[in-house]
């Protein structure tokens, strides 16, 4: 019992040590950020209309194409493609900038949770099982 307790404390100690700050202030991250920031003006109405949703792995997906006029759907698809390209690059870059490329998937999931947490009411988001629900 004592042994396990010790191990537990050790684990906590190590965990606490690892919780520093992540490096997220590099030119690449900043450039990706501003690219996403300027795209958000176009994405926002699509989120509000329920056309797009946020996935738990930190991406954007077309949730309900029917909410977009047919002729506009390719534009929405391109926006989603470009946004996901930036997001994937962002997660990879954060992992790389912190010398842990293997963190990429964890970072993507963390972002996924945070995007969803900060999404506005009425937006579509995925729950932990990947099911769509309205916030």
């Amino acid at each position: 019992m004592k042994k396990w307790l010790m191990l537990g404390l050790l684990a906590l100690g190590l965990a606490a040590q690892a919780q520093g700050n992540l490096e997220v202030d590099t030119p690449v991250i900043n450039s990706l950020k501003s690219s996403m920031q300027s795209r958000f003006a176009q994405l926002e109405p699509l989120f509000s209309a329920g056309a797009l949703g946020l996935t738990r792995d930190g991406k954007v997906e077309v949730h309900d194409p029917a909410a977009i006029p047919l002729a506009q759907r390719p534009v929405a698809n391109n926006l989603v493609g470009a946004e996901n390209r930036d997001r994937a690059a962002l997660y990879r870059e954060i992992a790389r900038a912190n010398q842990h490329p293997e963190w990429e998937a964890d970072i993507a999931r963390t972002f996924g949770r945070r995007w969803i947490e900060k999404a506005r009411p009425g937006w579509w988001v995925q729950d932990d099982n990947g099911q769509w629900k309205k916030k």
């Binding site: 684990a11 965990a15 700050n21 992540l22 920031q37 842990h100 964890d106 972002f111 995007w115």
Partner: peptide, 20 residues
């Protein structure tokens, strides 16, 4: 916990999301 600093990542994510 050792290999992935979840809290730090969350903090970083929040900062970036707020800006974007």
């Amino acid at each position: 916990n050792i290999y992935f600093p979840a809290a730090a990542a969350e903090k970083a994510a929040d900062r970036i999301i707020d800006e974007v």
